[in-house]
Write a protein that binds this DNA or RNA. Sequence first.
DNA 1: GCCGTTTTCGGCCCGACTGTTTTCAGTCG
Length: 573
Amino acid sequence: MTNQQIAKIFREIAQILSVKDENPFRIRAYEKAAQNIENLTQDLKELAKTGKLTSIPGIGQDLALKIKEILETGTLKYYEELKKSTPPGLLKILEIPSVGPKTAKLLYEKLNIDSIEKLEEFAKSGKLYGLPGIREKTIENILKGIELIKKGKERMPLYKALEIASSFIDYLKSFSIVKKISEAGSVRRRKDTIKDIDILVVTSDPLKVSEEFVNFKKVKEILAKGTTKSSVLTDEDIQVDLRVVDPECFGSALMYFTGSKAFNIKFRQLALKSGYKVNEYGVFKGEKRVCGATEEEIFDFFGMEYILPELREDQGEIELALNKSLPKVISFEDVKGDLHVHSKYSDGGYTIREIADFCRKLGFEYVAICDHSQSLKVAGGVSIENLLKKIEEVKKINSEYKDFKVLCGAEVDILNDGSLDYPQEILEKLDLVIAAIHTGFKQSKSQLTQRIIKACKNKYVDIIAHPTGRLWGQREGYEIDLEEIIKVCLQTQTALEINCFPQRLDLNDINAKKAVESGVLLSLGTDAHILDQIHFLELGVSVARRAWATKENVINCWSWEKIKEWRQKRIKS
DNA sequence: GCCGTTTTCGGCCCGACTGTTTTCAGTCG
C-alpha cells in the first residue's frame, strides 16, 4: 500500500460520510488526513515502524491505528463496512458539478437513484421535479453537469492552464477600467495539474468588467455572474472564475483566492488566536479593518516572512515563516543554464551554435547539449563517430565565446542490463552525462530500479533524466523504487533531473521534495528540441520551488566551474 | 476525528452565488 492509495481510502471515507450526512468536522478530518498524506514526502510504512504516524498533522490516535490496519492487512474493516452501506454509484454522483452530498442523499432516499445513468434517466423524464428544492433550473444544471462528466472533466496540465489564464488576462488587460489583474488559485501556486482557473481584478467598473469577461470569445457558457464573482466555461470546457475586488482588498483577496484551502484554514486559525479575523476583504480587529492592500503587508502584520505562492500548502511553511526561517528557494534569475537540450546531432531542430546564441541572449552562462545515444535510432541517436565530431565542434564554438560555455553532453540510454549506451572511454570525453531509460518500460519495479541504480554507480553519470518516466496523457510513470534510488544518489553524488518538458515535469514536486530533504541534488533540463522550448525552464523552476529547493540544491544555479568540481570529485573517487 | 499560550471538552475559516424559498439551504472555492 502506497501513501497515495491510503490517502484515497480516507478520501472515499470522507465522501461516504458526507452522503450519510455525518458530522462535517469528522468528514473534514478525513479529508485533511488524506491531503496531508498525499503531500507527505516520507513513507507511511517507515513512520508506522517507528511509531511516528501521529507526528503527521491531522493524524491522531484513531487514524494512526487505521493506517496501521491498512498497512498490515491491506484493507480497513471500517471502510469495507461503510462501502457495504453505500452503493458505489452514489459517490460517482457526487462528482457531478452542482450535486453535493445533500442532493445525492435526497435522490437516493426518495427515488433510490444510485448511478449517474439512473439520475440522467430520471432527470430527463421529469421525475425529479417537485422533490424538495428541485425545480426546472436544478434539473437543467444536473443534466449539464452529467454532460461535463461524460466529456471527462479531468485536471489539465499546468502549461495548458497557464496558456488559458494568460489569454484571459491579456484580453481583460486591454480594457482601461482594469486597474490591476492577477492569476490566483492553483495556477499561481504552480501545481502541476489544475482543475480550474482563477483570475482577480481591481477595477473602477465591476459590472462592465464582468460583462466583458463573460463576452470573451473563448467563453462557451456562463455559469454564474454577480458583481464580485463570475464563472464561465470555455470552449474547451474549462472553468474560469473571475473575482472583482476593491484596491484596498487586493492583497487579502489575492491571498485568499490563491489558497491552498489548507493554507487558508491554517492562516485564519492562527489569526483568530491572536484576535484577528481574516477574510478576502482584509484583516480585521472586530469591525476595524487593519490591513489587506498587499500580501506583503498582511504577512508582515502577523510578523511573518513573505510566503511564496508555490509554498502555500500547509506543509510547515507557516510555522517557518513565523520563525523567519523559510528556506530561500530558487527563482528563475538564479538559473545559469539549461542542462538538457537536443541539437541537430540527434532529433533537435537547431544547430549547437544557434542554441548557444539563443541561450546567451537569455542571459545564461552555459548550456549542455545532450543528444540521444547511439542505440536510440528512432530519435537520431548519435554514433560514436559523430559524437567525436560534436566534441570538436563544441571546442571550436567555445573558443569563440568569452562569456559563455557550451557543455558537450549526451543523454545516454540505460540499456536493459543497466550498462550505458557508450563505452567508458567515450563518456570520459564528455562535459556532462545524463542517463535515461527509454526502453523496457514494462519491466518489473525491481528490474527498472536496478537499471537506474547501476547507472548511478557509473562514475561518469552526472544526472538521471526524467527519473519516473511519466508522460502526461500517455502513461503513468514506470514503477521504480525512488526511495532506494535516492539513497544511492546520495552516495554516488548523482543528481536527479526535474525534466521541464510540460508533459513530463518529472520529477514532480513531491518526489523532488523527497530528493531535497534527503540531500540529493537536482538538475533542471528542458529536454528542448526547438529553441522556444528552452522557456520551459520556468516550469521546472516552479517544481523546484514547490520542492523547497535552494540554490545549493539545484546544480543549474552553480557556476560551470563548480559543476566541474562536483563531477571531477566523483570521477576521481 | 483532531487538537490545546482561553481548552482534555467543545470548538473546528469564511463568504458569494444560485435556486428555491419568502428567509434560507446547498454548493463551491
